[in-house]
Computed example of a mutant assay.
Amino acid sequence: MSELNRKTSAAPGVLQRIETPAGTVEYAEDGEGPPVVFLHGLLMDHAVWDDVIPLLPNGFRYIRPILPLGSHRIPLNEDAVLSMDGMVGLVADILDALDLRDVTLVHSDWGGSLFLTSLGRDERVARMVVLPCEAFENFPPGLPGKMATLAVRLPGGITLAARQLRVGWLRRLPVLWGWMVDKPVDDERIRRWTDPVLRDPRIRRDVTKYATTSFDPAELVRKTEALRGFGGEVLVLWSPDNRVMPPAHGPRLAELAPRGRYAEIPGAAVLSMLDEPQAVAREIGAFLTAATRG
């Protein structure tokens, strides 16, 4: 792989960059060994995993790309296709650019990457961990997702929504983050996640491309159910108490995958890595070490 595509000399925690057909993507990398790639949702970045990464076992390469979902700091190419299929393709392109193989892919909140199998782009993925995320017909997810979709379709709506997230009592409303996380999210982290979309119209352009995608429920279900063709191990690590991603979707996803297993993180909302980082790290760590022993 060309050194133009990847930097490998940065210290842990320092963002690196890769080039994809859609543009430059930043990522964080920690550790060495088999690759584990962590994804994230709308208006957040790799830092959503900060409390989990230090608790995971050594001997793995933990990679956290920043997807163009509103908290990315480098706008993608103006002609980048960021529809649902475009975003799924971008995830595959990131794995290609990093030349990753035998990947454990960790899904959370944004569920589009579940569609890699339906698009025939999952050849680099050997295993999956699925935290509460969009699936089946639940795109956009629940009340927060529907309100976010409405916001991006209104003039100035995404800017207003980002500013509201910065106000603690507003952030805790169900239409914003009240149903996404149970524990308080610190203001510094929220400012980091909302700065790009407030500062740069090109960032707003990118996230609007995705958020204004039209979804066909039947097609969403079909693409989710294509996981029947995924041959790797799958750990579905659901939060049954959350009110955004239906509790029934967790067991349903685990049953779809031929080698699926279901486990729960009780007492957490959608973003269980923020609510219960130790439990999430324990389950993911056990899954990773069992896979390497096998």
Rank of each mutant, 00 (worst) to 15 (best):
A248R: 14
A254L: 08
A248K: 14
S239R: 06
G232N: 06
P217F: 07
D182V: 08
P258E: 04
Y210W: 14
R199T: 13
L220M: 15
R191W: 01
W193N: 01
W179G: 01
T224Q: 03
V234W: 05
W169Y: 09
G178D: 08
L170Q: 06
R199K: 15
T194Q: 05
P247K: 14
A218F: 09
D186H: 09
L253M: 00
P247T: 04
D216G: 03
G229Y: 09
W193T: 03
K223H: 10
G229R: 13
V244S: 03
D182Y: 13
A226M: 07
R172D: 10
W177A: 15
R243V: 02
E233I: 06
D216R: 13
P247Q: 08
Y210C: 09
R192P: 02
R222E: 15
V197T: 02
V197M: 08
Y210T: 11
G229I: 08
P184S: 08
P240L: 04
R171A: 13
K223D: 11
D187W: 02
A226Q: 07
R243K: 15
P184A: 10
T213G: 11
P196Y: 03
R202M: 09
T224Y: 04
A248T: 09
D182M: 11
R205A: 07
V197F: 03
S239E: 08
V236S: 06
G231N: 11
R205P: 01
W193D: 03
G229H: 12
T213C: 15
N242M: 01
T194F: 00
R172H: 10
F215T: 14
L198K: 11
D206H: 05
E233T: 14
R259G: 09
P247V: 05
L173M: 14
P258D: 03
R204Y: 08
I203Y: 03
L198E: 11
G250V: 10
D195M: 10
T194I: 05
A211Y: 13
R191E: 12
V207D: 01
P246E: 12
A257T: 04
P247E: 10
R189T: 15
P251I: 03
K183W: 00
E255T: 12
P196N: 12
T194P: 00
R199M: 10
P201G: 08
T208S: 12
R171H: 09
R172K: 15
L256I: 08
P240Y: 06
V236P: 00
I203C: 02
I190T: 12
W238N: 02
V221M: 04
T212M: 10
I203N: 02
W169V: 11
I203D: 08
S239Y: 06
T194L: 05
E188R: 11
G178E: 03
S214L: 09
T213M: 11
D186K: 12
L227H: 01
P258N: 00
L170K: 12
V175D: 07
D186F: 00
R192C: 08
P184F: 10
T212Y: 05
W169M: 12
D200M: 07
M245C: 15
V197Q: 02
E188F: 02
S239G: 07
L253G: 01
L173D: 00
V207K: 05
